[in-house]
Structure formats: C-alpha cells, structure tokens
Design a protein around this nucleic acid. Structure first.
Lengths: 361, 361
DNA sequence: TTGAAAGCGATACCAT
DNA sequence: ATGGTATCGCTTTCAA
C-alpha cells in the first residue's frame, strides 16, 4: 500500500497510479498513451489493462503544460441564437473535431467589455485561435480594438480570425474569412429590378453594421446599373430581427410609401415584413414581392418560399478552421504576421416570393 | 539580461518574467493577480505596470494544475443547428459566464462513438460537468452507457447532467433537468379536441426518441380523456425535421387519410406539414388546423402563427448550470451520488393555426 | 525498449 | 507584507 492515498479512490487517478499498478515507469505509461513512440506489445498490454481498470484519462492541463495538449479554438459570437451563427459554428466545430481539436464558445452580447474579457480568457487558455463571428459595428475605436486583439493573440502564439466581416486595415496579424456580401446584394437587387420592380422598400439592417453597409452598397449599385434612381426615403434601418421587418413595413404602409417589393437585409427581417404585409391585407407575391438574405432554413420554410441570397455559412466555418490549422503549421510561403483574406461566393436562390409588379392602379 | 531568453519576446510571458521585471518574487505576482491575499499598494502598482507592459495573462493550464483554475462546463449536442438547442445553450452559457465559467461545446452527430470520445475528452479537461442536451434514443444499451458516463465523471469529480430527457433508472450519480413533455402534449391535444377535432393526424417524431414517446403518450391520454378512439393508423413517425412534416402530410393525403387537424411533434415538423397542406390546395386553418411543439421563434414567424407548446429551453439551461454549481459546493442536504430530477412546466401558446373543423362535406 | 529526472507555469504553505 | 520552494500531472531528453 502506498503511503499517501489509503487505497486508490481519492480523486482522479494519475499517471503515477497507473504506473505503480502496472509495475512500470511513468515514462512508459506516457509513451503508451501518447502512442508516438515505440513500445513493446507486452508493455502496452499491461498499461492498457490498468488504464481500463482505473478508467484513467490523461489530465489535459498537465499535458498542455508539459508541451503536448489538444489544440482548442474559441468561437465568439454576439448571440448564440441566430441560425447563421449556428451554421458557421457547425462548420468550425465539425472541422475542429475532425482534427481532434476542441471548441470553446463564448457570447459577447454586443458588449465590448465582455468581448475583451473573453478574448483574454481565451488567451489564458492558450487557444490556437479566437474566431470572431458575424458583422461588426464599425465605430472608430473598432479597428484599434481588433488590432490590439490580433497582436496580443499573435504574441501569445495564437491567432485572430474574423468571419463574416471585412478585413482589418493596415498590417494586422489577423485572418479574415468573408463572403461576397455586396455582390450578393447586387445580384439580389438586380433580380428584383429585372422583374420590373422600381419602387423597392429597402431594409438593409443597422446603419453601423458592416454587413448592412455592404448589402446597401450592393443594392445601390444595382439601381445605378439599371438607371433607376435610388430613393433614400425608401430605406429603413433597424436590427436584423423579425420585429424590425414587421415594424418597418407597417410604418411604411402607414406613411403611405409606395412600393411593390421589399429587399430585406436578412431572411428573418423578410419574414417579419411578410407577416406585416399580410396583416395589412396584401398578398405575397401577388401584391408585393419580398426577398431576403442568408438562406437560412427559415427561407424555405416560409410560405411562399423565399427568394434569397445564399451565404455559405458552414463552409466559412470550415475554411476558417483550415486557415488556422494551416497557419499553425507554418502555412505555405506565408510570412508570419501576414493577414489572410479569404472571400467565398454568394448566389441568388430563386424561390417563390417574387413576381413582376402588378400593373399600377 | 537573463540567460535563457535573449530579450523577452520568445513566446508567451510567464509569471517569472513579470516577477523579474518588477523586481519582486513570483509569489507576490501570483498574489497580486489572484487578489485573494493582502498586498501593499506599492507592490500592486509595480506588478500591474509590468503586467500591462508585457500584456501578460496567466496560463490557465498551469493554474488549473496548481489548484486554481476556471471551472468549465461542456455542452454536448447532436446537432448544433437546432433552435431548441440554441436556447438551452444560451441558458447554460449565459449562466456559466455570469459565474466566470467557460463553456465547451461538442457535437455528437448521433454517433455513440463520438459521444464517448467527447465525454472522455471532457473528462481529460477536468470539466465541472458534462451537459447532454436533447432527447435520447432509448435503446437497451442506452441506460448502461449513461450510467457508465455518470460514474466515470463522478469519480473524476465531475458531473453528468441530462437536459431534455427522462432521468436514468437506478442509483446513478446524474442530474436531470426535464420539462413536462407529456403534460404539454396532453394539453395541446386537448386543445384540438376541445375545438371539436376528432380526426387528427399525429406526427410525434421518431418512435425510439424519448421526447417523441412522451408526446405520443400525452396525446393518447388526451384522446382517452375525451373518449375519442385513438387510431394507430393516424400516427406517422419520422425525424423532427421539415421534410418529415411535408412528406407525412403529402403521403397521408395521397393515402386518402381523413383528418381535420395535424398534431406535429415539433414546430419545424408543423412548418413542413403546413407547406404540404398548402401545396395540396388546403388552407390553414380554414380547412385543416395545425399545432406544433417547442415554441421556437419559427412558430410565431409562420403564417398563420402557430399554436404550440411552450418549452422553457433557456431556463432549462440556466437551471442545469445552477444545479451543477450547487452540487459542486456541496448542495444543501444532498448526499453525494444522489441524482437530482428537476422538471419545468410547459404550457400551450394559443395563436392562429387552429379553428373548429369545417362541417363534414 | 525502458527508466530516472528535469522542467512546463502557477499556487500555496512555510518562513522571515 | 513578502520571499523561497515543494507540488500539481505529464512530456521529454538523457542514460542505461
């Protein structure tokens, strides 16, 4: 009987417990378990037997400290509840798990304080990378903030990855995985214009949000291309939620705005708009056409099914993780400190929510 | 200049770097940072200055090893993409963050192998608890599997928490946070019956899934209470997805089944059913009524808005985390090894998808 | 192939 | 109030 522990049940078994009980050295146990070193069949057998008996698992903290350790990615998001987030997260988590990596998740709730606290927490954890998800509110301070994160993480041997927002300015050690936001909006608006719509209610999202800005730019460009004047009065800003879509349409109707189509900033906003239209006795798409953006499952679950812009969220997640992994292994011909910028394509998915405008009354 | 590191930039700064540079002992630095010990103002100032300059953060692994460390909860789920999951996760994550805890996330994809691998991985991480989310497929092996998880985790000073599924049988050290699944189904079915419906198409979900079983039981009990015969031929099993709802209704229609209402196992299934009904030229709720289950945002975004059963997902998440925290601190009058079973209430949310059945043709 | 021992970075006990 | 140091559990030279 060993002196310390009466008889092996106090707390968690350690590698030493396994070694003693198997009558071998801790080094040997370590080697058997890591599997990255030649060991005799006999040794492996004896060790594994004890490991099974004791239901032993390695202490990840000790392992990390000593050099080994499972890489971990941290996913940070404003609100875990969005469908778009879920798909990016699935992409990241799936790719991470495939490589045996772990995924941490944190929500910032749009609070810079919490964001900072979380980034530091992740830095303490020694994560391989911090992945920031979703559009950002591009205030003055924002660029500095992110640059600081990037450098802190980089200095600690970690990385900052921005997903779904524009790359940072200047020479900042961060990777960006983005999608052709403006292009998608351009194509979507063109679709509406080519169907004959000229009076379009535009609900791009919150004015300070990078994604909303891009979508608005794309729409405006399409109008220009079609030689159709873009009326600022037809633009209503607001959050990317159902209520905003509902309220914006309801108010526009009340204000006597004249429109034959709604270009919504997201599918959820489109859903709200649709409901408001119907509440006002208007039919979709017979009286008013509606298009969304994101192509989350909701888009095809609405009636009529929504014509929208497909964004490859899950793939973005996978791409982000691959970028992290590549970079860790000293990516091909890539200076450390270099910022990568990857852009994935978007495309319009035509369903049943658009019809040519009804002849003017 | 110290001998090892040329000049403080190799990798991450350690507590020793901070101590040297501040001209104090590592013990002092530790005390300043932990803040759980009296230190002079002067010392604190000097240390914090250096900490700022070096952008130092403590190594979480070392800290854990040495005794301290941030508690972490692991959330395990089949598919991260479900709305119900998102809300439970938000509850858990929110409550965790509130306490300064971290949240790990893993997806099992319905694969027992991956589930086991993940549980072990979490055990290695020394998590405070593993929270398993969502209904389970209750095969024979299931109970044994979970019991094994529970004991392993318990032996390692961790915990197993089951959320959204029935408690385990026997004396297993696991906590269960569940909702009144059967009661909700009973109420929902009663609502339909009291509106006059007698021919109801029931889509409870996959037959082996605990949640589906409970919902089916609830429905059956309601029929009995109303003295209405429950026709097995009116029940169609399938996955909890949009396609199942669509296909089940389409096939039922094709098979000439006679029904005036659909009792769907989830809101998503209801959405699919709704679409299929409309594709067949039937109006909701004028021709056929529909009810769902879960009360995810989708339910109120559909047209007509769905009458459904509200499940307090987010609260379940919070409750689960609180249970973990309580237990860690030696919960009030609770033997270690005791399994807790918490059940939250559900209730029907009446919206616009139900009408009394149309007079028979 | 296997074992002994030196760290990894922090905490906390024991001195001072 | 502050400093020295054993220790946490594991990996990894270095020897044998």
């Amino acid at each position: 009987m060993s002196q310390r522990k009466a008889s092996g049940d106090a707390g968690r078994a350690t590698i030493r417990d396994v070694a003693e009980r198997a009558g071998v050295s801790v080094a040997s146990v370590s080697r058997v378990l890591s599997g990255n070193y030649p060991v005799s069949e006999e040794l492996r057998r004896r060790v594994m037997k004890v490991v099974g008996d004791l239901d032993y698992v390695t202490n990840a903290h000790a392992r990390s400290l000593a050099g080994g350790g499972t890489p971990t990615v941290a996913i940070l998001i404003n609100d875990i509840t969005g469908a778009a987030f879920a798909h990016v997260a699935r992409g990241v988590e799936g790719a991470a798990t495939l490589r045996g990596w772990l995924s941490l998740v944190g929500t910032t709730g749009d609070d810079p304080e919490r964001e900072l606290a979380l980034v530091n927490m992740m830095r303490q954890q020694g994560v391989a990378a911090v992945v920031l998800l979703g559009g950002a509110y591009d205030y003055d301070e924002y660029q500095l903030r992110m640059a600081r994160f990037a450098r802190s993480l980089d200095a600690a041997g970690s990385q900052l990855v921005l997903v779904g927002r524009p790359p940072l300015e200047g020479d900042v050690p961060a990777t960006t995985v983005d999608y052709d936001n403006e292009g998608g909006a351009y194509a979507m608006a063109s679709h509406l214009l080519s169907a004959g719509h000229r009076k379009v209610l535009v609900l791009p999202g919150h004015a300070e949000l990078t994604t909303a800005q891009g979508r608005l730019r794309g729409a405006r460009r399409a109008f220009e291309a079609y030689g159709v004047p873009f009326e600022p009065s037809m633009v209503r800003h607001g959050f990317y939620d159902y209520e905003h879509g509902y309220d914006a349409v309801q108010e526009s109707l009340r204000d006597g705005l004249d429109f034959t189509a709604v270009l919504a900033g997201t599918d959820v906003v489109a859903a709200g708009a649709m409901q408001a239209l119907r509440a006002a006795g208007l039919r979709v798409p017979e009286d008013v056409s509606i298009v969304g953006y994101d192509d989350i499952p909701l888009a095809s679950q609405l009636t009529p099914q929504l014509t929208t812009v497909h964004v490859p969220y899950e793939e973005m997640g996978r791409v982000a993780l691959r970028a992290v992994a590549d970079r860790r292994e000293g990516g091909p011909g890539r200076r450390k400190g270099d910022g990568d910028h990857l852009v994935l394509g978007t495309h319009v998915v035509v369903r049943n929510s658009v019809r040519p405008p009804a002849p003017r009354v």
